[in-house]
Amino acid sequence: MADILILGETRDGKLVKSARECVCRAQEFGKAYSIVLLGSNLANVANEASHFGAEKVIAVDNPSLGAYSCEAFAHAAATVVAQERPKLVLCGATALGRDLVPRIAAKSKGEVSTDCTGFDWDASGLRVTRPVYAGKLYALVALDPNVLNFVTLRPNAFGTAQPDPSKASPISNVPVDIQMNLLRCKVVELRREHKETPELTEAESIVSCGRGIKGPEHIKMVVDLAKTLNAAVGASRAVVDAGWIAQSYQVGQTGKVVSPKLYVACSISGAIQHLAGMRTSKVIVAINKDPAAPIFKVADYGIVGDIFQVVPLLTDRIRKLKQEG
């Protein structure tokens, strides 16, 4: 039996990226791992999963698992866990992972480490690093080797495994009895949100522009980049004062104070009034023609260049990257 069991989350008939991140980490440990899939009509995704170097792929293929239900999925997964008896269960800290894994762990009398940004397994044992106090500190935690550990990995924090079509793991279909009439909580509706740009103060990413965009007709260039990053659009005071964009987009001392994961400053000089509004952003990327611009003093990454060249190229590059998935 493999040491590691990976919960292979699927969406639209494919393994999600965070599932492949779990596989990548397991591969890096050099330990044997199995992948369990829960759902219905799993033939295609089971085939996809079989090319990721697992000892075996376990498919719990049941029409009752067609739509998500924590009770049904947790019961099915816990059954597989009891059969397979891994030392460690891995999953991405996605909406599904966060909802399902703790329930499986509770059923299996195990312990969960949520949203790990670091994860090591060597001779000295299993250790995870995870953000605490809303990311103000990172905790290094030594996991108890005597319990069944469940670890959810923060999406995009680890490398992604690539399939090897030359390898094929055996696929075993495991029946699990799910009594639908006993389920108390079921999904009755699925709503996809329309891709509106997120609100500035809540956005995870922001692409902001300064006076260097030269006119309102060039704001579209910034909006396009923002769209590829699913980001909100911001602006410096100069752009607002020039009347090129509404005041609600202003980031700065007299505008909005933001703290996103990513802040891309396009042709913003970095005057203190603007910095006051965005200096606590986790990652700051600056694109500016002037290598002496103060923004480069607070940025983490940057390009010294003309935004009219760099921004469309960046948009294109990121769009291609996202399509490759």
């Binding site: 250790r127 605490v132 990311g135 103000k136 500190l137 990172y138 905790a139 290094l140 935690v141 030594a142 996991l143 108890d144 600056a286 480069f296 003093k297 607070v298 940025a299 983490d300 990454y301 940057g302 390009i303 010294v304």
Partner: peptide
């Protein structure tokens, strides 16, 4: 507790220009 250590996130380094 199983926490071995608590550390702040790494301080912002100088900008890395691509």
């Amino acid at each position: 507790s199983k926490i071995m250590s608590l550390t702040p996130p790494p301080a912002r380094k100088n900008v890395k220009l691509a």
